[in-house]
Design a protein around this nucleic acid. Structure first.
Lengths: 225, 225
DNA sequence: TCAAAAGTGTTAAGTTTACACCCATGA
DNA sequence: TCATGGGTGTAAACTTAACACTTTTGA
């Protein structure tokens, strides 16, 4: 142990998770009513404290899994929020991560236990501390990333239709996309593979189901939407 | 004070600075020989510990100022590095920031005191811990940002020539740019203002000096290089 | 007078956008 | 049979890329 190190202060480090889900043409966040003081009962991001036996990234994965039961989820670090008084309880430095999950596959029982709810991203309530700012930054980071890397598929089921995919990207960008131009671009991505299955849930005619083939993508990773 | 908070561990939080400078057509980093254990004497980024009386961002500014004497420097957070054993001394979670400075204007006396040196970014020596990874991520983040926001000017003097500016962007991107196409794009940015001064240091003929006008930029912020 | 760097426009290629109708099906 | 959402191609507008010579001046 170095004297130099120990002359410096230590801090609680927390994780906050911006959990994105996509359903029925809408982006949603999984938010919860905080169940401890301060700000007990107010809307909050899912959070937790980094422990001794885990890296910061692992802590983020753990915190996400505690709420959703999910592992191997796509997560990205948004940034670290370190204002002195950001938490009125005591000083906590927080590392924010966003997660993209398939809204059909989380553990509903766990979510209920935490008193968590999906909230439309355009109708976010007041959030505690600097969580609103975290959401804003997460959304921007996600949008930017989604335009240049194929991360959007994490928000969809394994098999998805082109109308679904287009709706997802329209929601992420907050603007409509021309259907034929969209499909032209998708057609050029040979890692978005047509299956012989049809999804009839959205229309009488049914839409062809596609799959994102990550192995094929990795051989020639180019993506732009 | 909440019991819930205090049941969690605390950590040393450090700052590491990736300090970019541009000189003679080359990007450089300001690196130093670490003057305390562990890894004393090895090449390292400038760093320091976050204190109780400062935000994380302020700590980054302080650490940069301690080495360079500079304030009001353009800085961006790169990310937080939280692997358990990233520092073999004891556990330290580090927040990395990059800074863009005008290589003519730092405090050379301070830099000498810290035993710091400018190193060409393509000839970076072995660095301690995960500093190499921080440099890689900082460089990528800076490159991306520099392509869509006018941050490159922070690396140049107040007055600069178009050959200088082009050389800077060629260095940032690691590829050559067509001179006429480059100048065409610059000509469309009315916040890059021609002055009536000539810089004769680079050629016999001399090159016109330009200035980045931030106020004009803010009125219609569009930038793409 | 010549070497060295600064400065200047045009054309072709590629990319992006706009746009309208037919198809398949279940109710 | 008709209402609903799924599926398909082409042409114009715009953007990007390629390219070569003249100017100025100090040595």
């Amino acid at each position: 142990m170095s004297n130099y190190y120990s002359s410096n202060p230590k801090f609680h480090i927390s994780i906050d998770c911006i959990i994105f889900g996509f359903h029925a043409g809408e982006l949603n966040l999984l938010l919860l009513h905080r169940n401890f003081e301060p700000a007990k009962g107010e809307w909050s991001l899912m959070g937790g404290f980094v422990q001794e036996n885990e890296s910061v990234d692992d802590a983020a994965k753990r915190v996400l899994a505690e709420l959703t039961g999910l592992n191997n989820v796509y997560m990205e670090q948004v940034g670290t929020f370190g204002a002195i008084n950001r938490d009125p309880g005591e000083r906590v430095i927080s590392v924010a991560y966003y997660a993209l999950i398939n809204i059909n596959e989380y553990d509903k029982h766990l979510v209920e236990q935490h008193n968590a709810h999906w909230v439309n991203i355009n109708e976010i309530p007041e959030l505690i501390f600097d969580h609103k700012e975290m959401v804003i930054q997460a959304r921007q980071a996600m949008q930017k990333k989604a335009s240049s890397e194929p991360i959007g598929f994490n928000l969809l089921p394994e098999l998805f239709t082109l109308p679904q995919l287009q709706s997802l990207y329209e929601t992420i960008y907050g603007e409509t996309i021309d259907k034929r131009n969209f499909r032209k671009r998708i057609a050029e991505m040979d890692y978005i593979e047509k299956t012989d299955k049809i999804d009839k849930s959205g229309s009488k005619r049914g839409a062809i189901l596609y799959r994102f083939n990550e192995k094929v993508y990795r051989k020639a990773p180019k993506f732009k939407l």
